[in-house]
Design a protein around this nucleic acid. Structure first.
Lengths: 218, 218
DNA sequence: TATATTTGTTAGGTTAGCCTAACTATTATA
DNA sequence: TATAATAGTTAGGCTAACCTAACAAATATA
């Protein structure tokens, strides 16, 4: 069965709102705001999605995805994040340019295309924003990403993405011996200015808050 | 200005029909058949395209693209053929699988995307079917492709694509010393069974009609 | 050149997805 | 707990793109 771009966007957005608030549920106005449509349009679409068994929904009640609805949403997210990775890694798009184009690409309907793309990119686990990419079965890491600056001293984390794509920043990252998937241990953090001491490959380094704000870790 | 997928498809189809029949013009029924819609729908769309100054059109008259209309059509064709090339070369799609997916990809709206893709593919001149790919300015080869079997003895041509993607065929092609962009000179052709003698890199080879039917040349 | 055939248009309807305005249900607060 | 605020729904309309059926123009053929 095939669904319209619009239907796919509703499902994806319901899923995201559900993730954000932890309840796996969404409200009409919330959805409307997120999709930039009016609440009346949402109510209408919910009736359709319900009739297609993609959402659980009763008048004035909360919206929740059904199993097929959730699978579809995850599939769209998988496509979105794979395309972002493609744009970022192969076509030299920057961190902040990938999203918009991926919004269009995520709706291309071809199982083969997306699985081959996944293979071509060597089955990446995280997109350029550090968000996990669901695999072909729809399975993905739920661990939440954050900036390195938010990591607790004494804990370890893994770098999954950078926010800044300037050459100077990337060169600095490399010079510190850091790269995607590297482990970072937070030794200490100075409350006053956010300076951090981190351990990379057994070596201690000092980094500024400006730096740690631009490193995404999980 | 941005146009709908549907409008883009109309323009692309008018352009193709115009190319095919040499007049650069198309008729309503012809267009309708090609787009799998009814003539009434075409008439309606023509009024809209005319109001947007994309086609020259008078009631009961022939349809012809305006300059901006033609530019748009060529841009869509450029995108289509670049995506086909990507699918074929990078994602291991076969000759006959690329078209359908490219029909969707050709409408993605991002100048940067398509120009970066072009660069990533190293500015290919022909798609996997041997059709020329317009460059960023919309310029492309008009020379018509054909199968090697249709080439006249005494003439030379250039291989631009293959029809068969089986490993056995491709290995055979390679073993003959043939590859994309190679020059082929047709020495002789046997009327009875289509066997051809061709010259590749100064060497003469004999190939069957079945073989030459699967080599696209210009 | 009259008529049959082909080609193209018009009128009126449908569906998806959106809107506004008016309304109702739910929830929060005095 | 009554009422104000918020959240959600309904009714009625709009546009893009499609359709069918009936008609009109252009072209081909007897």
């Amino acid at each position: 069965m095939d669904f319209s771009y619009t239907e796919e966007n509703y499902l994806k957005t319901i899923f995201k709102i559900g993730l954000d608030n932890g309840t796996e549920e969404a409200g009409t106005n919330e959805l409307a705001a997120s999709l930039s449509v009016k609440p009346a349009s949402v109510t209408e679409m919910l009736k359709k999605l319900k009739s297609k068994k993609l959402v659980h929904y009763e008048k004035y009640g909360k919206i929740k995805l059904t199993k097929p609805g959730r699978e579809l949403a995850i599939d769209v997210i998988r496509k979105h994040r794979l395309w972002e990775t493609f744009l970022y890694e192969k076509l030299e798009f920057s961190w902040d340019e990938v999203h918009e184009v991926a919004e269009e690409l995520e709706h291309i309907r071809s199982k083969k295309l997306i699985n081959k793309l996944d293979q071509f990119l060597r089955y990446p686990e995280y997109d350029p924003h550090g968000d996990p990419i669901p695999n072909e079965k729809g399975v993905f890491q739920k661990q939440s990403k954050k900036t390195l600056s938010k990591a607790e001293p004494g804990t370890s984390c893994k770098m999954v993405a950078v926010k800044d794509n300037s050459t100077s920043f990337l060169q600095y990252v490399v010079s510190l011996g850091l790269g995607i998937n590297n482990k970072i241990k937070v030794i200490a953090r100075e409350e006053f200015d956010g300076m951090m001491t981190i351990e990379i490959n057994g070596e201690n380094k000092s980094v500024s808050q400006k730096f740690s704000d631009n490193i995404i870790v999980i």
